Computed example of a mutant assay.
Amino acid sequence: MIDLRSDTVTVPTAAMRAAMAEAEVGDDVYAEDPTIAVLEGRVAGLLGHEAGLFCATGSLANVLGVAQHVRPGQEVLCDSGAHIARAEMGAHGALTGVTMRTWVSPDGRVDPACVEALLSPDAGPYLVSTACVEVENTHNFGGGTVQPLDALGAVSTLCRDAGVGLHLDGARLWNAQVATGIGLDTYGRLFDTVSVCFSKGLGAPVGSVLVGSAEQMASARILRKRLGGGWRQAGLLAAACLYALDHHVASLAEDHAAARAFTAELTASGIDVATPETNIVVVPTGALTSGEVVARASEGGVRLSAVGARLVRAVTHRDVSLDQCADAGRILAGILG
């Protein structure tokens, strides 16, 4: 079975497991886990921020990050296909009282004009005030699209002029860095808080890190504990993330090449699919429903995700080869053709 449902299906390598077994650990609720401290400090430095906080998931990191800017009853603005809007189980409203408004973008790329049109930082006593804008890079449901740096810079200026927080869901920011060559700190310094994930293309079993100011991370640590996210000897998990930083970032380029090989088989069969920028391919299913395509692909040995009524998604990763991805593209082309 060629599993292209997500890059979250990656499993830790033997060397990563060895690094976990050898990790120095302590009680992180008491802020005494040295490996956690190394990871948090290193990621904060890479992204140009003061401090970091280790979290179990990207969803938790996003909830904590947005909550640093938005009080209950205020709003965060984001793309209609953003992960925080579509794939976090309504956690922001359910857990922290945050409301949400969205703009629409066909490929997830942020348009500063859309943000400016929605911004309402001081809406008065009868309307909801904007307290934060969220951007996703790369954009998952947009097809792994990379946000243009000039657009991010324009949104950053808009938010700072308006006194509104800016949060980056950078779960796959590593992919954007590898695809563009733009430094992580160049992206990171545009935002007030940033979350990055290690359990997708980087292949760690668990872990995301939220970064921001020291004051914000101290506040986020309290909320993390309140939500049940206090860790004890979590250095075992942090060691996997540190190993991924040292050994797995550059190989994301191979995942991008595999996504292009997958897409090439579809376009060769006359199926109109955009050339992927990173490791995610969103494919329209035409006359078939996405459920029908997912079922037929599974029978043919390929696992895909349904991300819309007539859209399926393939995500390449380190546990599938370029040749396997090309084979998967041929199988999907046969179904759609």
Rank of each mutant, 00 (worst) to 15 (best):
V9Q: 01
V9P: 04
V11E: 14
A19M: 10
A21F: 05
E22K: 11
D28E: 15
E40C: 05
V43I: 13
H49Q: 10
G52P: 05
L53P: 04
T57C: 09
A67D: 08
H69P: 00
R71Q: 10
R71F: 09
G73A: 04
E75K: 10
C78V: 12
G81N: 11
R86F: 07
E88N: 10
G90R: 15
V110H: 00
E116T: 07
L118K: 15
S120E: 13
P121F: 03
E136R: 09
G143L: 00
D150S: 10
D161K: 13
D161E: 13
G163L: 01
G163M: 01
V164Q: 06
L168R: 05
G170D: 02
L173R: 06
A179E: 02
T180K: 13
G183A: 12
T186F: 00
G188A: 04
V196R: 10
V206N: 09
V206W: 06
G207A: 03
M217W: 03
G228R: 08
W231A: 05
A234P: 07
A244L: 03
H247N: 14
A261T: 06
A264S: 08
A268L: 07
G270K: 14
T278N: 14
I280G: 02
V282A: 04
A287H: 11
L288R: 15
S290I: 09
S290F: 07
V294A: 06
V294G: 02
V294D: 03
A297P: 14
S305N: 09
S305P: 12
T316C: 11
D319I: 14
V320H: 06
L336I: 04
G337C: 15
